[in-house]
């Protein structure tokens, strides 16, 4: 099922490039800011990232506040935040991995890092996001076979692209 959806997603992106170029579309003002302002669905957003990989020379991709909030809500509601793996950084900020497997952002991020501030009154508050969008094949046997096949497929299919960081703020 996943493989089918991968192929379908690919066909969709090839026929309809729609990542934000920063210019208004013909005949009207643009609706989206970079990072998914206007909030397309997570699948469309994943395709947006694929195009970013292919055409944007490794520049950072900045999530919009709306996208960041949506990502956090999805992660929170689906218990995707791995609180037990929190690491306290030197500046008192907490870095916590998120496994998006159970969320609609699985295809966009896979695993990513959320940053939280903490105080006694408000508890944990999400303040940042970090991920690297890359397609690095590994030696066979480390990832699952299906996972490695998918990564190598995209590495071949998006050949010439450059890995980039996804950040917020």
């Amino acid at each position: 099922m996943r493989w089918t959806s991968v192929i379908k997603g690919e066909i969709e992106t090839i026929s309809r490039p729609y990542f934000d170029t920063g210019e208004d579309p013909p005949g009207g003002k643009k609706k989206k800011a970079q990072g998914g302002g206007g909030l397309s669905g997570p699948r469309s957003f994943a395709n947006e990232l694929k195009y970013y990989y292919k055409y944007n020379s490794g520049t950072d991709y900045h999530l919009s506040p709306e996208r960041f909030n949506d990502v956090y809500e999805q992660a929170h509601q689906n218990n995707a935040i791995e609180w037990d793996k929190a690491t306290r950084l030197a500046n008192g900020i907490y870095s916590i991995p998120v496994n998006f497997y159970k969320t609609d952002y699985d295809f966009a991020f896979g695993r990513a890092t959320l940053y939280f501030s903490f105080d006694q009154t408000n508890g944990f508050k999400p303040i940042g996001f970090f991920d690297v969008w890359d397609l690095d094949p590994k030696p066979w046997g480390i990832r699952s076979i299906m996972n490695e096949v998918i990564t190598r497929y995209y590495n071949w299919q998006l050949d010439g692209g450059t890995s980039f960081k996804i950040v917020y703020p």
Partner: peptide, 8 residues
């Protein structure tokens, strides 16, 4: 996770 980046 079977995403393009092969995360897991």
């Amino acid at each position: 996770i079977n995403n393009p980046g092969g995360d897991g």
